[in-house]
Simulated scan of single mutants.
Amino acid sequence: MVNRFRATTLAFGIASVTFLAGCGDVSPSDSAYRPNDPRYVDETQPDNSVFGSNGLIGLFGGGSKKDAQGAQGIGVNTYLWRASLDTVSFMPLTSADPFGGVIITDWYTPPETPNDRFKLNVYILDRQLRADGIKATVFRQSHAPDGRWVDATVDPKTATDLENAILTRARQLRVNTAQQSS
């Protein structure tokens, strides 16, 4: 009876240690965007099959295909996605969804204007690299004399300038990819 109790306790102990060993400490940098991370490069073409166009083989890493944009697997245009992340990289990210094409930043206070802070929402709307495939929204708050942050107006040109900067970077990425593949 004692041997059975010891064996059960030992088995439970080993299972517990194994389980806890899998629970690692996750630091904020683990979830940071890395431009060369293969998780951000996958297929963009829609598939009508539950398992995709490559069937079960695609689930285990085999047989990927590239579309005409040079992008793979995320739900939006890869060049727009990477250009958006590059362009807003100076701001802290709150959320970045490569499948839905949404990037939301946290509030950022530029060193030049400590009484203003900005927040961005970037939406990638298309799988093609097109001017109307990106939409940016800029929010601004000013520091009130009583210490609160209050909403302030933003020049509409600011969002347009941000969209143009993203499109310019996306075109650069596309040209660089085309030059590397030839």
Rank of each mutant, 00 (worst) to 15 (best):
M1D: 08
V2L: 10
V2Q: 07
N3C: 05
R4L: 12
R6H: 12
R6I: 12
T8Q: 08
T9R: 01
T9Q: 05
L10E: 15
L10G: 12
A11Y: 11
I14Q: 05
A15I: 15
A15K: 11
V17F: 11
V17T: 15
G24A: 11
G24W: 06
V26D: 07
S27R: 14
S27L: 15
S31L: 14
R34K: 15
R34I: 07
N36V: 02
N36Y: 03
N36I: 01
D37Q: 05
Y40A: 03
Y40S: 03
Y40M: 06
Y40C: 03
V41Q: 12
D42V: 13
Q45G: 10
P46S: 15
P46V: 15
P46A: 15
S49M: 11
F51Q: 08
N54K: 03
L59H: 14
L59N: 13
F60K: 06
G61E: 09
G63A: 13
G63M: 04
K65N: 12
K65A: 12
D67K: 01
A68E: 04
Q69A: 15
Q69I: 05
A71M: 13
Q72A: 13
G73R: 10
I74E: 01
G75A: 09
T78S: 07
Y79L: 03
L85C: 12
D86L: 02
D86W: 00
S89W: 07
M91Y: 11
T94S: 09
T94L: 09
S95A: 08
S95R: 12
S95V: 10
S95D: 08
F99R: 13
G100Q: 13
I103A: 00
I104M: 01
I104K: 01
D106H: 09
Y108E: 03
T109C: 02
P110Y: 06
P111T: 11
E112H: 06
E112K: 11
D116C: 11
L120C: 10
N121A: 14
V122P: 00
V122R: 00
Y123M: 09
Y123T: 14
I124M: 00
L125I: 14
L125S: 13
R127E: 07
L129K: 04
L129C: 06
R130T: 12
D132C: 07
A136S: 06
T137K: 05
V138E: 04
V138D: 02
R140L: 11
R140H: 10
Q141T: 03
S142P: 00
H143R: 10
A144I: 06
P145C: 02
P145H: 01
D146W: 00
V150M: 03
V150F: 00
D151C: 09
A152L: 04
A152V: 11
V154E: 02
D155P: 01
T160L: 09
E163I: 14
N164V: 01
N164E: 04
A165T: 13
I166S: 02
L167D: 10
R169C: 09
A170K: 00
A170F: 01
R171Q: 14
R174T: 10
T177F: 01
A178W: 03
A178R: 12
S181L: 12
S181V: 15
S182P: 03
S182M: 07
